[in-house]
Amino acid sequence: MTNKNLPASLRGEEFVLLPESFFTQAIPEIEDIAELKVVLCFFYLLHHKQGYHEFITHGELLSYCVPVIGEQGFHSGLRAAIKGEVILSLSKDINGRQEDVYFANKEALDRASRGITPKQAAQPLNIFALYEQNIGLITPLVAEELKEAAKVYPAQWIEEAFKEAVNMNKRSWKYISRILERWASEGKDSGEYRQGIKKSGANKYIKGRYGHLVKR
């Protein structure tokens, strides 16, 4: 019988990054074990994808998942993950034929649907790039929150907040959003609001749809 236990020491093991929202928002909604296995396989493949790719093809996911959970489990789990929008899907031309491809967030899906590559879309201090580099993959659940923050806070603030979170070993969007909210309400460095952010704009973010992420 195969030993399925983890090794006593994980030293030297490579870790696969998963966004915090996967544990706090996605897992509570996943009720089927097949769906959970498909989602974990998807993130594993996406983590190891080489080059500027933001999606996994149906063939890639099928080839990896079927030996793990069987063909029936794969198809039922994938349907559930797409229905719950944990995984987003799009039909795309791959080497001259249409194939379903899967994304972890709406931003990547929108770029692919417009024919924009991640390399073309990359921008310095982009909040999405900062999140992926310092926290992990962006899910549909957190993409809208990042978009709202990018509208409210200066790009320099956002980059510095990510750096502070990394230095404090607090790699979560919740922690970073609290840094930004504190700077907006109390002032940053000089105690005054920097040019580019209005008090009303910060309050709108704090009290609005995503206010639960930046509680005082």
Score class of each variant (00 low, 15 high):
A81D: 00
F74K: 01
K106M: 10
A129Y: 04
E144K: 11
W157K: 01
I138E: 03
F22D: 00
F15T: 04
E192Y: 13
G201F: 03
N5K: 13
L46H: 01
V166R: 06
I135G: 01
S200I: 08
Q123V: 12
C65G: 04
E148I: 06
N203W: 12
F23E: 05
L46T: 00
Y52I: 06
R216F: 10
K204A: 12
K106G: 02
Q156A: 13
C41S: 15
G59L: 10
R171Q: 14
P67E: 03
H58M: 12
A8S: 10
Y205D: 01
Y175N: 07
E60D: 13
G208W: 07
Q25G: 07
K4V: 10
Q120Y: 08
Y175L: 08
M1F: 09
F43Y: 15
H212Y: 14
I33V: 15
L10I: 03
N95S: 14
S172Y: 05
I176E: 02
L109P: 00
L40Y: 01
S89Y: 02
G73M: 08
I127T: 03
R178C: 13
P67L: 09
C65T: 05
Y193R: 14
E159C: 10
F23I: 04
L10H: 02
M168N: 14
V101Q: 02
I116R: 13
S172A: 13
S177G: 10
F128K: 01
G96T: 03
A161M: 07
G196S: 06
K92F: 15
H53K: 11
K92V: 14
R194Y: 07
A161V: 02
K92M: 14
Q123G: 06
G191S: 09
Y44A: 08
Y205M: 10
F162I: 03
G208E: 06
K92I: 12
K49F: 08
I27W: 05
T24A: 12
N95D: 14
L146A: 05
I206C: 11
R182L: 10
A165K: 00
L17D: 05
E99H: 06
G196E: 04
F103P: 00
E20P: 07
E145F: 05
S89E: 14
E148P: 04
F42Y: 12
L180Y: 01
E29H: 09
L61Y: 01
G51D: 10
I30R: 04
V86A: 09
S76C: 11
G136S: 07
E159H: 10
M168T: 01
K4Y: 12
E14D: 10
E99W: 05
I138P: 03
E181Y: 06
G12H: 04
T57D: 08
S89D: 12
I87M: 13
T24D: 13
N105C: 15
K188L: 11
V38A: 06
E54N: 12
A81S: 11
A184W: 02
P67F: 05
D93K: 13
K215M: 12
Q120N: 10
